[in-house]
Design a protein around this nucleic acid. Structure first.
Lengths: 202, 202, 202, 202
DNA sequence: AATGAATGAGAGTTCATTCAT
DNA sequence: TATGAATGAACTCTCATTCAT
């Protein structure tokens, strides 16, 4: 989930006022894209929500695509920054995957818009969509290898397991994070941890 | 991946010529939506590809939304009809999940457009998007309950496991069905079956 | 002044109604471009004048540039078609140049917009601008060579004379055709013919 | 090519720094207008090229139109100042016209942008366009009258001849000054002088 | 049942000009 | 005098939908 979009040249604000305006536009865009999706969201709706004039949009972004990419990059970084410390704090092996999932569920509940934005990237900016999931899987696979090396999980863990785990996490986030909150995050994480512990036992 | 309401799918043709035209429009729409996504695909591109006049579109469908819904319904039914027999033919328990995944991977490789179409439903027709995944999970959960009743898997299987399995399947389909075919479907299904067998052992 | 713009594909009207609409747009565009120039003339003003909806413009032309090129081509052909018979009817030598100028002055008085449209091509479509003048000069040079071969003018006529004659004609058209009509076309043509006769005498 | 009203040319700078900034803006504008034409050239491109802030433009010019008029005036004066001494140095009659043309061709080769700027005035500021050519013709006509009075050319020279000569010069400048330099200025001027000498012989 | 011209609301984007600092 | 952010009207172009034939 790394930042993939280089900022377009000559659009960086040079004053404080400029930085405030740019931030307001990004926040407004997140809200509009989440509600309406990329194509239905209009720049004029974004600027209206941000409280700036239509033309001011182009002081900070080259196009509708550009602000979308900036946003995907923004959100990717936010998830990673939220989840990473929880994982590091866990002792190792399955505990790390459990911590990652629980932390992810917590993040999703506070940022329900993330699904619509990342998913829409599949259509608006396929490269960043693939990159987002590819790096996420890489991190999972890396952790599994380390755990295997320490004998905490079976030695034959491989890429298929990493994709399976990511898929689980994404859909559990959708179901128990975005759609309904009828189970606690700890509860869901416990069930999965138990499942993983057996499935990956050495 | 359940079928949407059939009555909303358009105006039923009365003649053979009409049925051919309607089918041509659906096929053209599948191709256009897969390539460009819902919003970028235009009715005129669909009719051009189908080889009919622009105005004829409205003889068969009420709107762009309507043909999209008809298409999602179409594809949902196709997957189900492809996967269901494979599952029924499997002896039971984990073997059924294995058969379902392998069959699904095979279908996806021949219908790579399915991801873009179903995913876009999240934005175009959220109800059908939720319905699609909800019914899929229901079927998985139902099979798990039966397997538990027969003592083939642990007794405490529950909804969380069903969502986890669906998430795995969806992302494995994306990775090993759509993006790359560097592993055989049997191979991927074996890894997952082994993983499930341990994770869900009684 | 040859037709230089190939018609864009798929925009040719297929019905009579379509042909009428296309013609109305071309006429309206000639009027608007003459009054306001290319950049100030707006497509909405053109369609308003033509009495059709804004969107109908794009049924017949791909862009503002496209209708402009179609128009330059149209006008180039009109001048040529108007002037050519007058020249052919003249006995030869200087008489042909005299007939060409007089006929040109007559045309210009009825199509004062031609100057603004051809001149603006320098900015909008430089290739057609150069082509317009290059072919005009070619025709003059060709006539001079023939006249020289027949001994009607001096043997050393050359390209410089052709450019000089075209320049004269263009500016006399501007002054005595577009700006003011205080001299008869015959009168102006007589003065020039006498001047040429001496200047090019064998 | 007469000077426009000086007072409309902008706000006179009071300091040296101001004068330098104003000059930089004029030079940048000449380059931008020549490349893109009036409407496509933007104030922000001009200020960027001049190396000053966008807002500073309005310290020196009231509008985009204003700087354009200042520029036309500037260029008109430059041509006149370049050509006039060459004409004065010539002995009289046809020699003066020859000197005027050769000097003009030389100027044009070093200032190819002059055509695009003066020609565009037809659309941006028609008054200055007419004024430019009217005064040029006046000077030619005046010289012809003097030459006639001295018996150097025929007695019946008149306005039509003056317009013809100006037209010749303008197009010869375009062809042998701007578009290609495949003939020396002296060569072209010689051909024309010979042509004029005969055409206007007393 | 089929055609394709017509419609017009609405989109993204540009840019001359203003203004607070 | 210089800066650059802010403004908003105006533009070109798209396209789902309607309708006369």
């Amino acid at each position: 989930m790394g930042g993939m979009a280089a900022e377009s040249a000559g659009k960086e604000p040079r004053t404080d006022r400029g930085r405030r305006t740019r931030r307001a536009l990004l926040d407004a865009a997140a809200a509009e894209f989440a509600t309406d999706g990329f194509h239905l969201a209009s720049i004029s709706a974004i600027t209206r929500r941000a409280g700036v004039a239509l033309g001011s949009f182009y002081t900070y972004f080259d196009s509708k695509d550009a602000i979308f990419r900036a946003l995907v990059s923004d959100m990717s970084e936010q998830v990673r920054d939220h989840v990473a410390p929880a994982i590091r704090a866990a002792p190792g092996g399955i505990a790390r995957e459990r911590a990652g999932l629980e932390s992810f569920l917590g993040f999703v509940r506070q940022h329900k818009e993330i699904y619509r934005i990342i998913d829409e990237a599949e259509f608006v900016d396929p490269a960043s969509f693939r990159h987002h999931y590819a790096t996420t899987v890489d991190r999972i696979a890396h952790r599994l290898e380390e755990a295997a090396a320490r004998g905490e999980v079976r030695a034959d863990v491989e890429e298929v397991h990493a994709w399976a785990i990511m898929g689980m996490n994404v859909f559990l986030g959708l179901r128990y994070g975005v759609w309904e909150e009828d189970r606690s995050t700890a509860d869901v994480a416990d069930v999965v941890a138990d499942f993983l512990a057996r499935g990956l036992a050495g």
